[in-house]
């Protein structure tokens, strides 16, 4: 019995290792290209010989990388915090509290995900310009203008709602019978078992904010408010692609997100089997 289980795990490991190769090949190419001098890209060599950090130096010096990076961090952290608060509260209401037409509200909210961003850009941009004219440190060309449309995301509300739906009503009822108010039930009973879902929410809202390109491009106008993806686009030249620099920029952008993911995984999603819901 145990031997069979061992064998099964070994086979599983082989499958995972094989698919990891498929998952990693494009990244292998990304990293090696970023280490290849621009003139030697596409010269047919698989490995850079010798590898050079020249492209990274270019990325870090040609554009104000530090400033863009800091802006991206501020935007992403703010968006994540706002979403954790707003989305979780709204989702709990839509999943577990008495409200008329909860399902309809959910679908109406989902239309904000269905509408292609491009169509909303002009009205939204005008709004931000007007806000900026009324209050110079808000709206267009400020970080607040980048953050505002991401402050609440229906994807997050929906994710949390579906998680809350799966929380058994019985544990809520037990708390209610103990005389707990809805707010303290959410805080003391529901949130402590919600960390895997919240970690997932952090990952996805963080990723979306970190990688967003079109809206930050439209709403910012100066280096002071540009985020990393918008800033990295400035590395391009009009008629050609510098593959080394593009790939170095890609690596530098993706790395913080991968680290964040690994940390959240280890901390919240992986080790939680012991603390899962008891019915």
């Amino acid at each position: 019995m145990i031997r069979r289980r061992r064998l099964g795990l070994a086979m599983l490991w082989v499958v995972l290792a094989a698919s990891s190769v498929i998952m990693l090949v494009p990244w292998f190419w990304t990293v090696t290209t970023s280490l290849t001098p621009a003139a030697e890209v596409f010269s047919g060599n698989l490995l850079p010989n010798p590898p050079t950090l020249e492209a990274y130096a270019q990325v870090l010096t040609l554009i104000p990388f530090g400033g863009y990076f800091l802006n991206s961090v501020v935007v992403t952290v703010t968006v994540v915090v706002l979403n954790v608060v707003f989305d979780t509260c709204a989702a709990y209401a839509l999943a577990k509290l008495p409200l008329p037409g909860r399902g309809v509200i959910m679908i109406v909210l989902l239309t904000t995900l269905m509408i292609p961003m491009q169509v909303n850009i002009i009205p939204l941009y005008r709004m931000m310009v007007n806000v900026h004219n009324a209050v110079p440190w808000l709206g267009a060309d400020t970080l607040s203008g980048i953050i505002a449309p991401s402050a609440v995301q229906v994807l997050g509300i929906f994710l949390m709602r579906q998680f809350f739906v799966s929380v058994p009503d019985s544990i809520l009822e037990a708390a209610r019978l103990d005389g707990a108010g809805e707010w303290s039930i959410l805080r003391r009973v529901v949130l402590p078992i919600s960390w895997p879902a919240i970690a997932t929410l952090v990952i996805f809202t963080g990723l979306a904010a970190w990688n967003d390109f079109l809206w930050p491009l439209i709403v910012t106008g100066s280096d002071a408010s540009r985020t990393l993806p918008v800033g990295l686009a400035l590395l391009s030249k009009k008629n050609t692609v510098n593959w080394s620099e593009t790939m170095a920029g890609t690596v530098l952008t993706a790395l913080p997100m991968i680290v964040l993911f690994v940390i959240l995984q280890r901390r919240f999603i992986e080790g939680l089997t012991a603390g899962s819901v008891k019915e």
Binding site: A90, A93, L94, L109, N120, P123, V152
Partner: peptide, 23 residues
Amino acid sequence: YLPGAVLLAPALVVMTLMFFVPM
């Protein structure tokens, strides 16, 4: 309905301004 409405309201206000008005 009050607790649900209170929890939902902030999200609804933001979404109205940022999505429903442009939509």
